[in-house]
């Protein structure tokens, strides 16, 4: 971590996180005492073998699930002390989510899908016309705004999902296997888009991925194995 980066603010922190599930009467410990933090502007990839708890960790960071023990601190506020409503507001305004299967509303057109978080917040879309156009330009789908997801390719759908995550200018973008469902060309394009968002728009990104290539687009990798952090370090350039 460079001196410059260490001066940046912590955006999210995991403190002593444990997560267990009870399956068939047996307790299964998925995450065991995780401690780490992510600073503003970082692009972190969480990697590890299947079942090591990567996605569970991402859900905990996004407040979609609660840890069995420990706490997640986002922007100096602990999720543990928040009500469901406040948690929804954080997800809506300060976090951006991107999923493997895009998760778009099939019956809404591209524009309405992107505007969804705004609508949830009772904001007037006409005030966001400029932002929408800018975002559509970034993702390169300005000509597709009136089309529904079923008329788009997988790569295009994922771009719409990224645009939706960007609309509210979130502090942190959480992506769960964002290119897991795409061919390598579309996958590369999406990762380049993430890189641009991270560098040029100074957005913090945490992604869960299986792919080394995808992880190399970021600047830090956290390796999980059997629910504990095995390695945590910067991406080697070159």
């Amino acid at each position: 971590m460079s001196a410059m980066e260490s001066m940046k603010n912590k955006i999210i922190e995991a403190r002593g996180i444990f997560k267990s599930f009870t399956i068939g009467g047996k307790k299964l410990e998925v995450l065991k005492n995780l401690n780490f933090s992510v600073n503003e502007g970082e692009f972190v990839s969480i990697m590890g073998p299947s079942g090591c708890g990567k996605s569970t960790l991402l859900y905990l960071l996004g407040g979609l699930d609660i840890p069995t023990q420990g706490e997640v601190i986002f922007n100096s506020n602990s999720y543990n002390t928040m009500k469901e409503k406040d948690m929804s507001l954080i997800r809506r305004r300060q976090l951006g989510f991107v999923f493997q299967f895009y998760n778009l509303v099939p019956n809404l057109n591209v524009e309405d899908n992107i505007l969804l978080p705004l609508l949830l917040d009772d904001k007037k879309p006409k005030h966001y016309e400029k932002d929408l156009k800018k975002i559509l330009d970034i993702i390169g789908l300005n000509n597709w705004r009136k089309h529904t997801p079923r008329e788009l390719s997988g790569g295009q759908q994922q771009r719409v999902a990224i645009a939706r995550a960007l609309l509210f200018e979130p502090k942190l973008i959480l992506a769960d296997e964002p290119i897991g469902n795409l061919d390598s060309k579309s996958g590369d394009e999406i990762m380049k888009l993430f890189k641009t968002i991270n560098k040029e728009f100074d957005k913090t990104i945490i992604q869960v991925t299986h792919s080394n290539e995808s992880a190399n687009y970021g600047n830090r990798i956290i390796y999980l194995r059997d629910g504990v952090i095995e390695k945590d370090g910067a991406v080697k350039v070159g």
Partner: peptide, 16 residues
């Protein structure tokens, strides 16, 4: 179902 799960993830509260 999938649609509502997604809406929950992007910040739609239970009430909404």
């Amino acid at each position: 179902r999938d649609q509502y799960i997604m809406l929950k993830k992007i910040g739609m509260s239970r009430k909404e």
